[in-house]
C-alpha cells in the first residue's frame, strides 16, 4: 500500500516534468513543475485517507495546486498558468476517460455511466478548484489595495 503510493507520487513527479517539457517550460523552472505535480498528488492521496468523495478530494488537490502555482509565479515573476498546468496534470482524468470509452466499445452500459460520471466529476472538480482559488485570490488582492 505504502509502496504503491510512493510509486504514484514519484511517477506523478516524472509525469509533470514530462508535461513541463511538453509545453516548453523554461529549464530552470522544470524542477518546480515536477515538485508541484508530486505535491498535488501527495495531497490527493492524503485526503483520500479521510474521505472517498472523489469530487471533494479533487477539489482540495486542485485548489492546492493553484495556490502553489500562484506562490511560485510570485517567486519567479512569471505567469501563474505555467505552473498551474503542470501541477494539475496528475489530476486529469485520462484513466477514467479511457475506461468510459472501452465500456462504450464493449457495450457495458452500467460501466459507461459509472466511468462517465467519474470523468465528469473529476474534470469539474479540477476546474472548480482552480477557479475557487483564483476567485478568492483576486478578491483578497483587491481588498488589500483598497
Amino acid at each position: 500500500m505504502m509502496w504503491d503510493h510512493l510509486l504514484q507520487i514519484l511517477t506523478a513527479c516524472l509525469g509533470s516534468l514530462g508535461f513541463g517539457m511538453f509545453f516548453h517550460i523554461e529549464r530552470k523552472k522544470l524542477p518546480i513543475a515536477a515538485l508541484s505535480g508530486g505535491l498535488t498528488w501527495g495531497l490527493y492521496l492524503f485526503c483520500g485517507l479521510f474521505t472517498d468523495q472523489i469530487f471533494l478530494v479533487n477539489l482540495i488537490a486542485s485548489f492546492f495546486a493553484a495556490a502553489f502555482a500562484e506562490f511560485m509565479a510570485h517567486l519567479f515573476k512569471a505567469p501563474a498558468t505555467i505552473f498551474t498546468i503542470s501541477a494539475v496534470v496528475p489530476l486529469v482524468p485520462g484513466g477514467t476517460l479511457y475506461y468510459t470509452m472501452r465500456a462504450i466499445v464493449e457495450r457495458r452500459e452500467a460501466d459507461v455511466v459509472h466511468y462517465g460520471v467519474l470523468t465528469g466529476l473529476t474534470a469539474g472538480a479540477l476546474a472548480f478548484g482552480l477557479l475557487l482559488f483564483t476567485g478568492i485570490y483576486h478578491f483578497v488582492c483587491r481588498l488589500r489595495k483598497e
Binding site: A12, L14, G18, M21
Partner: peptide
C-alpha cells in the same frame, strides 16, 4: 524526452 516521460510515467502512474 517530454513525450517519453509524459506517456511512460502516466502508464505506470
Amino acid at each position: 524526452s517530454g513525450y517519453l516521460l509524459g506517456s511512460g510515467s502516466f502508464a505506470v502512474f
